[in-house]
Design a protein around this nucleic acid. Structure first.
Lengths: 221, 221
DNA sequence: TCGCAAATAGAACGACCGTGCTATTCTACC
DNA sequence: GGTAGAATAGCACGGTCGTTCTATTTGCGA
């Protein structure tokens, strides 16, 4: 047990700097992309030597993979987990959407936009471990949206004949559109557009005669 | 005049190889991204020396800009021009959408997806001439969609209170969603989703009591 | 046919890339 | 306090990047 404890202490020392490295790496990758992230630049940014930093990972592939894992974890913590603690049905869908937007608006954590979105475009023609990871992460996200939509159907909030796959696809397309319009086109109306579109999506998805107000008043009514 | 003709002949010789270079460069950029395009790789692909190829452009920036210009021109020729030869109103909107999808499905010209879409994500945090160009190209596209939607309103096809900006945003988001789902997620349902969503967008945009059938039968009815 | 200018090639440059090897520093335990 | 082992640094390597300079080849017009 003591040796195990000792080992943990060692691990803590390493893991701490490793976490700091990944934190900086996430921001750089957000700006420069996962392929634009270089070891030299990262080392300079965290104040280490290239070789010292390199030793934490067994190669660049591994560094990139770690960054993608960190980005996914960050996303799950900020968007998925809190949403799935909301009440089942439309409230949860709403939370999912709101958290996603807030996450994309978090300029401190993501100064250059979502690492996962840009990575999925950078990697879409480069087979390998990185691509596989991003693909799985995105698929998981979609599946979770579908799951939440299915629950909303079961709860009677959404139409029983709703195509949950189409719902998830549409919702994700709106998120992509927002990300794109905000970041590249710098359109000030991006947020207004995405919110109105999402509201419309909710309306056409609801079961007839059902409406769950934003302030959730109807829940107790 | 003769000297001018002679000059043109010289220009033709250079322009011919330059066009061949850009053709190959477009395909590479489609796969590797506009930042992933390197002069050495491109030179090897077209069978030239690095320096010989380099001489056609005054620097890498200029090469990249030329590639983006070529991509834009390709897009305008394949999507915009033919669509704006269609009848005003909903038929033109439909053509715009169809041409866009066909363009994205053109694996021969775009083996790795749209250069402009991936470039707009690669460049969204790198100020400069390249970013400015892509931003303008994207803005022009959006404005043209808005213009076409406005015409459809004037023609009485679309609701008079339609928010044409929101329409263009939604339509473009669907295109992004399709591109994303098809390329990264390799979802076989991507095309079905985008077509159904677009159909739904048309339905909520139409003037009450109006329907323009896909086969355009109603146009003469 | 010759000459001139455009087009292309060759070689070299400095910079940065990822990576390995070998010290050196640090730190928790005996 | 000494020591083992983890963490970090220093340095050098081969390779590729964009770029420049200097030949060489090419092809049209006089």
């Amino acid at each position: 047990m003591q040796s195990s404890a000792a080992k943990n202490i060692f691990e803590v020392r390493g893991a701490k700097t490793k976490a700091a490295i990944l934190d900086t790496a996430l921001k750089i990758a957000s700006l420069a992309g996962i392929e634009g992230l270089t070891i030299g630049e990262l080392a300079k940014a965290v104040g280490m030597s290239k070789s010292g930093l390199f030793a934490h990972f067994r190669g660049k592939d591994n560094l990139q993979l770690s960054v993608l894992q960190a980005a996914t974890e960050q996303f799950v913590e900020a968007v998925m987990k809190p949403a799935f603690q909301e009440p089942r049905g439309e409230p949860r869908i709403r939370a999912l959407f709101k958290n996603y937007l807030d996450h994309l608006n978090n300029e401190e954590a993501l100064p250059g936009g979502s690492v996962l979105i840009s990575a999925s475009i950078e990697l879409d023609d480069r087979p390998g471990v990185l691509r596989d990871f991003v693909k799985k992460a995105q698929n998981d996200l979609i599946k979770n949206i579908e799951k939440a939509a299915k629950i909303a159907v079961d709860e009677g909030h959404f139409r029983s004949d709703l195509d949950v796959e189409l719902f998830a696809w549409t919702m994700y397309s709106f998120v992509l559109g927002y990300h794109h319009f905000k970041r590249m086109l710098e359109s000030p109306k991006a947020e207004q557009h995405v919110k109105r579109s999402f509201k419309g999506l909710l309306e056409v998805s609801r079961a007839p005669g059902t409406q769950i107000s934003k302030s959730k008043k109807l829940k107790r009514a």
